[in-house]
Design a binder for these strands. Structure first.
Lengths: 196, 196
DNA sequence: GAATTCGCTGGTCAATTGAACAGCGAATTC
DNA sequence: GAATTCGCTGTTCAATTGACCAGCGAATTC
């Protein structure tokens, strides 16, 4: 039911999840504190634990949100690309991936943080969110099967690293990766790199 | 002087730094605790704070060690490649980078963790260690200058991501990135990708 | 319009954190 | 061989952590 309470409730949860995504992606799971998340969402820590009874569940909610965004992007891209020849479609998909990475740098930071070691969060993320994505990837590609994993991580890394370390990149190279120009340049580079 | 005390001292510090690299790369700076580092080095926490008075300094020592390994690799590669034609040399450099990433997955995890946000550690790492490396990179490449940063991070990401998330990759794709075969396959892929 | 639900607050808890401290005792220096 | 250095230990401390709980009061339901 769409009561005023429910609307307010969902708005609050969104604020909390958004803050959680930021803090987790900046500080990692262990480095992030629930109080810092609450602070950024302009909420009390007790409100946070009310909506998300444990840090674990908060992290899962953040992951759900991020993968939801990717899902939206994917579906839109597939729809738009259904009538384009396969060669041009692959190029466009690569471009879209770069643009997604630029708009959601937190996404790959999540993946990189959790994939480092064997732990429950990694297993949950793989089983819940990553496996369906990888399945789609393998189905859309015609590389020999023993190369699929290599290409997958090469594309992912090449597309996202620039945006994942934007602050470092700017200080090191002078390039600000968040500008529209930088994003499109990178998209073009990645698309060229992985064609064929 | 090479006294017995000094030898023991250096051995202990090496043990501590090695453990620190592991823990920092797995849990990030904020997630890592000095007690966990000490535990893995089979030392007491007070011994750790004796050799490295603050967590910050321990982290710097770990970074110094990791960049030292890269420096050794670089120098060796440059030496060996001095009489090879530039085209083949670039290929071999790419291969060496992949092998280094495979043997030192902690290296890029460090970079990715620290580059996420503006903070003192990031600035220290860029100014102390990253800048000289990036300078060498730009000098050895003949891309147009506005592409250099893009290529730099594309190569870095494509080479290292597979090994940075080895645990995740194995669960997701079934491929164990730590095997010799996987490493060489990835090296070949990256070398082909970035040639020309 | 009375009863009840429920989003939210403030306070509290044990556990963990990074750091500091006073001492011990074997290795070194004189 | 006496004096001293110094690598190392055990303990302690204040601060921060994730989680829990008893209530309040406006929105909802009856």
């Amino acid at each position: 039911m769409e009561t005023r309470r429910n609307r307010q409730r969902e708005a609050t949860r969104r604020r909390l999840v958004r803050a959680a995504i930021q803090v987790f992606s900046e500080l990692g799971f262990g480095g992030a504190s629930t109080r810092e998340v609450a602070r950024r969402a302009r909420a009390s820590q007790s409100l946070l634990t009310y909506h998300f009874p444990s840090k674990e569940l908060l992290w899962q909610a953040a992951a759900d949100d991020l993968f939801g965004r990717l899902r939206v992007e994917f579906d839109r891209a597939r729809e738009m690309g259904s009538d384009i020849p396969p060669r041009a479609r692959e190029r466009e998909m690569a471009r879209q991936l770069v643009r997604f990475s630029a708009r959601n740098p937190e996404f790959f930071r999540f993946l990189l943080e959790v994939g480092r070691s064997q732990n429950e969060r990694m297993e949950w993320l793989v089983d819940t969110h990553l496996t369906p994505i990888y399945r789609e990837f393998t189905a859309s590609r015609d590389e020999p099967p023993e190369l699929l994993a290599h290409v997958f991580y090469a594309i992912a890394g090449a597309s996202s690293t620039l945006f994942s370390v934007a602050a470092e990149c700017e200080r090191l190279t002078g390039l600000d990766p968040t500008t529209e120009e930088a994003i499109e340049t990178h998209a073009e580079l990645i698309a060229r790199l992985f064609e064929r």
